[in-house]
Amino acid sequence: MINIIVVLVVIAAVVFAVMRIRRGGGCGCGCSSCASGCSSASKNPTDTNTEYPPESSLILDITGMHCEKCSTGVSEALNALDGVSAEVNLAANNAAVKLSKAVSAQVLRTAVEDKGFELTHIRVL
């Protein structure tokens, strides 16, 4: 009987460990959506060598945001960049960005990815 209990405890520990690892792509808030991860990530990378000039208006498509904490983190990261003003739309999984200085795609990508999300496309308006 004790062996069965030990086996069940080990199985439970493994299941929780796997769930925690899968949650790594989200914001870490623990909401049920973040725990499921993002299954719709596009593999169409943006050219990281592109530099967008001042006065550009962009839409950044971002995967992995599932709650207000997610979008707030991305918003803070983008707005912390010199010359960037961003408004993140959680429902649309994107950010509207206006530039007052030249900014590269790599800088935008790094800001988003450092928060644990994926920048899949940059559209110039």
Rank of each mutant, 00 (worst) to 15 (best):
M1K: 11
M1S: 10
N3P: 09
N3E: 11
V6G: 03
V6I: 08
L8A: 14
A12R: 11
A12L: 14
A13P: 05
A13V: 06
A13C: 08
A13R: 09
V14F: 11
V14C: 10
V15S: 06
V15D: 06
F16G: 05
F16H: 05
F16Y: 07
V18E: 01
M19H: 13
R20Q: 09
R20I: 05
I21D: 01
I21P: 01
R22C: 00
G24F: 15
G25F: 06
G26H: 09
G26A: 14
C27K: 03
G28Y: 06
G28P: 12
C29R: 00
G30N: 02
G30R: 01
G30A: 03
A35V: 03
A35N: 03
A35P: 01
G37W: 15
G37V: 11
G37Q: 14
C38Y: 06
C38F: 08
S39H: 15
S39C: 09
S40M: 13
S40A: 09
A41V: 04
S42Y: 08
N44F: 04
N44Q: 14
P45Y: 07
P45C: 04
P45T: 05
T46H: 04
D47V: 01
D47T: 03
D47N: 10
N49V: 00
T50G: 08
E51F: 07
E51R: 10
P53R: 11
E55A: 06
E55G: 02
S57G: 02
I59W: 15
I59K: 10
I59R: 12
L60T: 02
L60H: 04
I62H: 00
T63I: 12
G64D: 13
H66A: 12
K69C: 07
K69M: 07
C70S: 04
C70M: 03
C70R: 03
T72R: 09
T72H: 07
T72G: 12
G73M: 01
V74P: 02
S75G: 14
S75V: 06
E76I: 15
A77H: 10
L78W: 11
N79D: 01
A80K: 11
L81V: 09
D82Q: 05
S85E: 14
S85N: 13
S85P: 11
E87N: 15
V88E: 03
V88Q: 03
N89H: 07
L90E: 00
A91C: 14
A92F: 11
A92T: 07
N93G: 07
N94T: 05
N94M: 05
A95I: 13
V97Q: 02
K98L: 07
L99I: 07
L99F: 11
L99M: 05
S100A: 11
K101T: 09
Q106G: 01
R109S: 14
T110C: 14
T110F: 15
T110E: 10
T110V: 13
A111T: 07
V112C: 04
V112K: 06
D114V: 02
K115G: 04
E118M: 04
H121P: 09
V124M: 15
L125M: 10
L125I: 08
L125Y: 13
